[in-house]
């Protein structure tokens, strides 16, 4: 009994440590964003304040809300389109017989292995030619192509795990191929679609390089670039404002993940009971 208890206690301690390790940066961020001084190691000087938030929200020159809005729209649209395309592609790869299926999959994955920096110069030229610099499509288009390979891989493995008998059964029940996709495969694959969508969304939300080079001002600039632009604005590093802005921009992402998380867990439970 005592041994069991000890294991339990140790396990809890280890878990808490791991959680603390992961969450410490966020804690740091929160504390700094609510304090007058940014030196967390001299705790004496810490004083609670809302000043950092009011400051960046009041001054329109900061464009905080613009950046967050841009980020959400760009990430949302690119995640939606890339997962939609990837799901249809994955359906074809997992359900239809055609030559070089696996090679196509590998080829698409390989194409995503180019370092971003190697194509960014060319991408800039293309966007200038298309007159798209500093617009949403300038970021949405490359994000879609960057997100499709990983989404395609996730969706292909997810759709392959759905028994083919479901398709056959729906076919006999009178569905066309498109109806099978819409009425059976899409709802059953919801957990996979949401995981792929979340991953794509987070990638686009965090992306820095393309956003830095293809946007110019608040009309298309995204959060990561916006945060960087805080530096040097007043000739110093305004850590309080930076942390306040980071915290603000994390709120929508946090809410989205919390909201969709239950679908992912639900999916795990459901597939566990199949058979």
């Amino acid at each position: 009994m005592r041994e069991e208890k000890l294991t339990k206690v140790l396990l809890i301690i280890a878990t808490l440590l791991a959680i603390f390790f992961c969450l410490f940066p966020f804690l740091y961020m929160l504390v700094i964003s609510f304090s007058k001084s940014w030196d967390i190691f001299s705790l004496v000087k810490l004083e609670f304040t809302f000043k950092n938030y009011t400051e960046i929200l009041k001054d329109p020159g900061f464009h905080c809300m613009d950046y967050i809005k841009n980020s959400l729209i760009i990430s949302g649209i690119s995640a939606f389109i890339s997962v939609f395309v990837a799901t249809m592609g994955a359906y074809a790869i997992s359900r239809f017989q055609f030559p070089f299926r696996f090679s196509i999959l590998l080829f698409i994955l390989a194409s995503s292995m180019f370092p971003q920096i190697s194509i960014v110069g060319f991408l800039f030229k293309v966007m200038v030619k298309l007159n798209l610099i500093n617009t949403y499509p300038a970021l949405i288009l490359p994000y879609i192509s960057w997100n499709i390979p990983i989404s395609l891989w996730i969706m292909t493995s997810y759709l392959s795990s759905i028994p083919k008998d479901l398709d056959k059964s729906a076919l006999l029940d009178g569905c066309s191929w498109f109806q099978i996709f819409i009425k059976i495969i899409l709802p059953v694959a919801k957990p996979g679609i949401i995981s792929a969508g979340l991953l794509s969304f987070l990638f686009s939300f965090n992306e820095f390089l393309f956003a830095l080079l293809l946007t110019v001002d608040y009309r298309a600039r995204t959060v990561p670039v916006g945060i960087v632009m805080f530096q040097g604005l007043h000739g110093e590093l305004p850590w309080g404002s930076i942390m306040a802005f980071t915290t603000l921009s994390l709120i929508p992402v946090f809410l989205i993940v919390i909201f969709f998380q239950k679908y992912i867990i639900h999916g795990v439970i459901r597939s566990g009971l199949k058979g």
Binding site: P163, K168, L171, L172, G174, C175, V188, R270, K274, G275
Partner: peptide, 18 residues
């Protein structure tokens, strides 16, 4: 298959889980 009016029961039942 749609026009053949046949019904089939599969080994794993193939019920639509959703």
């Amino acid at each position: 298959p749609k026009e053949r009016n046949i019904a089939m029961v599969f080994q794993n039942y193939a019920l639509y889980p959703h």
